[in-house]
Nucleic acid binder design. Structure first.
Length: 287
DNA sequence: CCAAGGCCTGAATG
DNA sequence: ACATTCAGGCCTT
């Protein structure tokens, strides 16, 4: 009985450090016992128990506390590799980010790495975001869609994003003009949402899955980057035979279908646990 | 529909 | 030192 109780508590626990250091967010820093980070037009301060203090006093469910982790873990634990990852990184959560910041972050992420993504996004915030003071410290909010839509490509490029600068400007403009509305996409299904955001320049399959998983509540999204492909080849060779070396759009769709068949509707959580485990195995740096 | 090549940049590799 | 390669992809040909 006591064992059962403690097991349940573990499954619902939140590990802030692990969650933030899992490649989902970039504008975060450790301040003593707190983690401070930029989330759109808000700044969050989080303590070790996952309690959130918000600059805008918004009640954001940043750690998705409403997700039933008991059920999710049970659902995705279809194989020994995933069970191992879940056990090792218990408390890892999918974070519910500001969608616009998430969109820009993952456009920046393409063909890049965490250190550089972080540097670029910090420059973008500092240059185009509003400076605010919170808990006696200086922060820059993430720029609004309007601000980035009006910025020149050269100004954006100077933040170290290279050829992605024009993607960022065009993406911001699409959101500013409300050609795509995140709130309505939150209510749409996976395929409809994916088709919509893949129309944004700089957004392909992988980036779209990140945006959907980390900010639009699509828990079946399963971002397939080089690391995940490597993981599938290494641990899931029998489950998902990868037919070609390069993942074309169609191959990506076929593979995603197989993945959801295997892991179920919360496949995105499986992805996050596996990704975290493998990156730690290779001692990759986070923030 | 698929394969191949180009792309900003900076850290790592030789 | 200095050149080449490579990294959480995407777009064009």
């Amino acid at each position: 009985m006591i064992q059962l109780l403690s097991k349940m508590q573990n499954n619902n626990a939140i590990n802030v450090e692990i969650s933030i250091n899992s490649g989902q967010v970039f504008l975060w820093r450790k301040n003593g016992e707190y983690w401070d980070g930029v989330n759109g037009q808000d700044i969050l301060r989080i303590d070790n128990f996952g309690s959130i203090k918000s600059y805008q006093n918004t009640k954001t469910d940043f750690f998705r506390k409403k997700d039933n982790m008991e059920q999710i873990i049970k659902s995705i634990s279809k194989d020994s590799t995933t069970r191992k990852a879940v056990k090792k990184y218990l408390g890892l959560r999918i974070l519910k980010q500001d969608p616009f910041q998430c969109l820009i972050s993952f456009i920046v992420s393409s063909n890049s790495n965490i250190q550089k993504i972080k540097t670029s996004l910090e420059k973008i915030s500092r240059k185009f975001g509003t400076k605010v003071e919170f808990e006696n410290q200086e922060f820059f909010l993430f720029p609004t869609p309007k601000k980035l839509a009006k910025a020149s490509i050269n100004e954006i490029r100077n933040c170290g994003v290279g050829y992605r600068a024009k993607f960022i400007k065009e993406a911001a403009n699409i959101i500013f003009l409300k050609k795509i509305d995140f709130e309505s996409l939150k209510k749409s299904d996976y395929f409809e949402t994916k088709e919509s955001i893949c129309s944004i320049p700089g957004v392909g399959n992988k980036v779209a899955d990140c945006i959907m998983l980390f900010s639009l509540n699509k828990l079946e999204a399963f971002p397939l980057d080089r690391w995940m492909i490597r993981i599938l080849e290494k641990y899931f060779f029998n489950e998902f035979q990868l037919e070609t070396k390069t993942i074309t759009k169609k191959q990506y769709d076929i593979l995603h279908d197989k993945i959801v068949n295997h892991f179920g509707p919360y496949a995105g959580y499986a992805q996050q646990f596996l990704f975290k485990m493998e990156r730690e195995n290779y001692q990759k740096k986070w923030l």
